[in-house]
Amino acid sequence: MKIINISQDKGAIRKLKAGEQILFSGIFYTARDQAHQRLVEAIQTKKKLPINLENKIIYYCGATETPPDKVIGSCGPTTSNRMDLFVEPLLKKGLLAMVGKGRRGQEVKVLIKKHKAAYFLAPSGCGAMLSKFVLAKKLICFPELGTEAIYRLEVKNFPLIVGIDSRGKSIYKL
């Protein structure tokens, strides 16, 4: 198994191939439906974004509440294709990769290839296990969205499968 332990290493991520299993160490930013809508609205109305997306990785995740003795609660991926319509403006702002579950639309594959980005699958429905790979969690913006706010997660050896690689090749036959 390949182990990528350099935070947001563009070169290493671009070399990965669809179907490869990796253990990722670095930073994720959580965002799901509502946060995506807000980010894209901000881009369209030319407002300042609350986070710089350059070289960042977005994790489609809304964790449970955090128990007092833990860093984070259960934190698995949500269905990625609900975010398909928001992908292009984020990639244009330099987004490096996305992490979630399930298939993406054809247009997302094309966009990933164009921007040499990547899409990873996280073990779906395994949020309790995944919480063990999160070292730190910090609220970044949109606290009023509750679980849908953007959080910065520091992860170590987080298990992933390459879903769509930088050449636009997908693990799923659509």
């Binding site: 995740c61 809304g62 449970t64 128990p67 833990k70 259960s74 395994c126 949020g127 309790a128 296990m129």
Partner: peptide, 19 residues
């Protein structure tokens, strides 16, 4: 992973799935 997750959830009193 699903079986590992069940163990982690039970041991840590964590939700099996964040949903």
């Amino acid at each position: 992973w699903i079986l590992d997750n069940a163990k982690a959830a039970k041991k840590g009193k964590l939700a099996l799935c964040q949903d």
